[in-house]
Design a protein around this nucleic acid. Structure first.
Lengths: 216, 216
DNA sequence: GGCACCATGAGGGAACCCCCTGATTCGACC
DNA sequence: GGTCGAATCAGGGGGTTCCCTCATGGTGCC
């Protein structure tokens, strides 16, 4: 069985590396280096699998998460295999929660990567050994419902998350307002709700909170 | 002119990517994935250039630095081009101080990488644009002697550093004042001097600055 | 149609942050 | 003995942050 894939990574070197590492029975039908072209490429080529760099720059949700959000919630969606230099628990959990079917680090060998792509294509979930523990901790265990690491994050509405990210990066209320084309007062309202929902008391704690789960 | 290179990186995917990205006039004569085999390979193959992953695991000095130490201080030593996902100032400065003749990130394109290899081979120093600033700041300028990576930190008096650390952790001026048994006004003065000396504009940037060099 | 929730925004106030000028004390240095 | 830097502190001003309350329009649900 031939598997079609699209490779999304902003690093030319890594895209080449992935492409050349894959076995002949895996057909690279497209590549992209940013959020916009990734979404377009995936819709156009409709691959079975997307190999997605977790640290993709751009977008409003941190790059890779934007791509996942755009691409997954429609019929015929591809399976997504996340590829990352990071093995931090937060990255893994956020990515998997966003819909990725697998998560491997760039330390993976070529044959193993090909194998992971094939397994994801058939519906398996694939995780590097040292990541499996994180996933099992974050899911299952509790008994069906997701005992997620960022159950907190889910409490926030989309708009609140958007504002939260900008605030966590150090933008002033005024700057956030300008970026999102809303008034300062609305930003204040959103921030207030975010702080309350996350049980934080000021923007410094928020920045720290966000940094810890690599949201920023 | 053909240039001979040895590629050192613990990630299979990246070694393949680098190898395949290089032009035909660059001859990959060897590869290695850890400190020991890198040193052996470089001595055996005596390449003109070594492409070295900065985050190489193993060894006593952080991997890449061990390789540099072993390989450089002998006649006929190769030129070393450091390759990294990181553009943190400390990494760059430490690597260059250890003897690397160039430092590029993995976001470099294939042709640019080939060009960098050729230029390093001929004795040029090559740095990604956004890294050049760090290098010029850390070296030269002062006039011969090496101005260390945290020359910035040295500008601060002890008291200023103490205040800076607390501010960077998110304490309010009032809290810092209480912790250090001084008045809020004194804290303000110290913070003002710190921001000025470090060329920062507010406490958020200070927190970020401190986080980057792992001061907090 | 109500109800809940979300996004938007206003007004006002207390606290906090940042900058400016200016001051005193103390120890080090030439 | 004067000079210089470090550390301490004050007053004031303008902008920012955080917390209230309140209000409107839209959307999804029963």
């Amino acid at each position: 069985m031939t598997v079609s894939v699209v490779i999304v990574d902003d690093h030319d070197v890594i895209r080449v590396g992935v492409r050349e590492s894959l076995d002949d029975d895996i057909d690279v039908v497209g590549e992209a280096r940013d959020v916009e072209s990734a979404v377009a490429e995936i819709r156009a080529k409709a691959p079975q699998v997307v190999i997605l760099d977790v640290h993709l720059p751009g977008g409003t949700g941190g790059g890779a998460l934007d791509v996942l959000a755009e691409v997954l919630h429609r019929p015929g969606a591809p399976r997504v295999l996340a590829l990352s230099v990071s093995d931090a628990a937060e990255d893994v959990v956020a990515t998997v929660r966003a819909g990725a079917r697998g998560y491997v680090t760039k330390s993976i060998s070529g044959p193993d990567l090909s194998d992971a792509v094939r397994r994801v294509a058939t519906g398996d979930a694939v995780f590097s050994p040292r990541l499996a523990g994180f996933v099992l901790d974050a899911f299952g265990a509790a008994g069906g419902e997701v005992a997620a690491a960022d159950e907190d994050l889910d409490k926030l509405t989309e708009r609140e998350q958007e504002v939260m990210r900008l605030i966590a990066r150090g933008y002033t209320y005024r700057e956030v307002a300008e970026k999102l084309f809303i008034s300062i007062k609305t930003v204040e309202t959103h921030v207030g709700k975010v702080l309350h929902k996350l049980q934080l008391s000021n923007r410094h704690e928020l920045a720290h909170w966000a940094a810890q789960r690599r949201i920023v």
